[in-house]
Simulated assay, not measured.
Amino acid sequence: MGESAEWTRVDDGRQALDLLTASYHRHQFARHSHATYAIGVVTCGEEQFRYRGVLRRAGVGTLAILEPDEPHDGMAARPEGWAYRVLYPSESLLFDGRTERAIFREPVVTDPRSVHLVRSAHEELTAGVDPLAAQSKLAWALEAVVQRHGALRPAPGAPKPGDAAAGRKVAEIRDRLLADLRCAPSLRELAAGVELSPYHMLRVFREATGFPPHAWLVLERVCHARHLLASGRTPAEVAGAVGFADQAHLTRWFKRVTGVTPAAFRNSVQDAMRRPA
């Protein structure tokens, strides 16, 4: 199985949706998270990934459902690698029209019906031939995922003492990191800004986000790079704009997180946008 990956961005009629079609042999994803859900079907081979502290395996016939902001990695579970198709719906798209939200306790499930619906929707969306049919299949697929595998979120309990204060400090740290992606503050500056020791600040931030500040910032840089590349900016332009040292630095991290190079991502998204409606 060779290495290949293609990102596509489509408009499902309500909002933009990212899709990934890929096959990997030796590629290993760095530990990262997504701002959206990730719903994927393995079409060949088997993948393994560490998620919520447990090593999971997803093979042909399984459906993988990852929630937003949940750290995970990804690599081949067998020497022959794996191939898959992944949808990345936002929360508003996945729960369209619902007042209640669901959680997905099992990240890997065996469900032929949901696998068929997700794969069919993905194929129709990437083909770009019949937008109405593709949007209908996507709606059916997402409905099946929520109905068959989601569980209503439990009512929130009473907040623990200090939770609100810690949350405000984490938000302040995030804002400081995002204020200028090109120039990260020092660890001591971040800690002083929220009146914590560097060690205490690191622990609070990691407990809230799953990452230390420097790793979280790299992922945010990759996220911003994706938006700029999708708009048509070149990798060389984007690297400096989001704070990477150079194009090679951007390429290294972008591929570790997304599975493709910045140039390949830009070209695939631009090609999809140029397709006639």
Rank of each mutant, 00 (worst) to 15 (best):
E3C: 06
E3S: 10
E6Y: 01
E6M: 06
W7D: 01
W7S: 06
D12W: 07
G13N: 04
L19C: 07
T21M: 11
A22K: 02
Q28V: 15
H32N: 04
S33Q: 04
A38S: 15
G40M: 05
C44K: 05
E46D: 06
Y51R: 00
R52P: 04
L55A: 09
L55F: 05
A58E: 08
G59E: 12
V60G: 05
G61H: 03
E67H: 02
D69K: 10
E70L: 08
P71H: 03
M75K: 01
R85C: 13
L87Q: 05
P89T: 07
P89R: 03
S90I: 09
L93M: 10
L94S: 11
G97F: 02
I103G: 08
I103E: 11
I103C: 10
V109W: 08
R113E: 15
V115S: 06
H116V: 05
A121H: 06
E123H: 00
E123G: 05
T126M: 03
T126E: 04
T126I: 11
G128V: 12
D130V: 08
L132D: 11
L132Y: 04
A133I: 13
A133L: 14
L138T: 07
L138K: 07
A139Q: 04
A139Y: 02
W140Q: 11
A141Y: 03
V146L: 06
Q147D: 13
R148D: 10
R148H: 12
L152V: 14
P154L: 13
P154W: 09
K160V: 14
D163T: 14
A166I: 14
R168M: 09
R168P: 02
I173C: 15
D175Q: 00
L177G: 01
L178F: 06
L181P: 09
R182P: 05
R182G: 11
R182M: 06
C183S: 15
A184I: 07
E189L: 09
S197E: 04
H200K: 10
R203I: 14
E207S: 13
G210Q: 01
P213D: 12
H214P: 02
H214A: 13
A215R: 06
L217T: 11
V218P: 00
C223G: 12
H224D: 05
H227C: 06
L228N: 00
L229E: 08
P235T: 14
P235H: 11
F244Y: 06
D246G: 01
A248N: 03
A248I: 08
L250H: 01
T251I: 12
R256D: 03
G259S: 09
V260T: 14
A263T: 12
A264E: 07
F265D: 00
R274P: 00
R275K: 14
R275Y: 09
